[in-house]
């Protein structure tokens, strides 16, 4: 489950400060902020710029360069579906169509209910057991339409979505 503490300037500043001893602290700071709040709020830009002695533009430019950092709170559950070649060879694109036709879920689109979001990722290093996905950060192999159905149906699940699905699988 994705953490979603509400944005808080004081907490953000403390997180930033705790990384200042690092060389090239920018990415560690951004990851830590996203870990805490589920996204990088625009209010972070000025705080980071001040702490690292950079312009706002440099901070924004860095955040926008990387696919990982997002500016809006994430859904409660995030499924990162691999769509690189090895997973293509075992039908990941059919899964993308299935999500659309059976569940109205658009990969990389907006979440409807705030509960689940499916994003494209290119390779999870599980290419011999694809199609693969990271479900709230946990790796799942040999994903098929039934797995996705179960994930979507269990999206209200409060603890580990992946465990809930594995339970159903075996």
């Amino acid at each position: 489950m994705t953490r979603q503490a509400l944005w808080n300037d004081t907490r953000a500043r403390a997180i930033i400060d705790s990384h200042l001893q690092l060389e090239g602290a920018m990415l560690p700071i951004l990851h830590a902020l996203q870990e805490e709040f589920g996204y990088v709020d625009e209010r972070a830009d000025a705080l980071i710029a001040d702490s690292l002695n950079l312009s706002h533009a440099e901070v924004r430019g860095t955040i926008s360069f990387y696919h990982d950092f997002h500016r809006e709170p994430a859904a409660k559950h995030v499924i990162q579906l691999c769509r690189a070649e090895a997973c293509q060879s075992v039908g990941c694109e059919q899964l993308v169509s299935h999500l659309h036709s059976a569940h109205g879920v658009e990969v990389d689109g907006q979440t409807h209910d705030g509960l689940v979001q499916v994003k494209t990722v290119y390779c999870l290093g599980n290419c011999a057991l694809g199609p693969s996905a990271l479900v709230d950060g946990e790796i799942l192999g040999r994903v098929d339409a039934q797995t996705l159905d179960a994930l979507i149906e269990q999206r209200d699940h409060t603890t580990s979505l992946r465990d809930a699905v594995e339970e159903q699988r075996s």
Binding site: G24, M26, F65
Partner: peptide, 20 residues
Amino acid sequence: AGAYICGEETSLLESLEGKR
């Protein structure tokens, strides 16, 4: 942070330095 190009060594160095 999810950028394929950061596997290219100089892009990786920029990224480690905290830049695009």
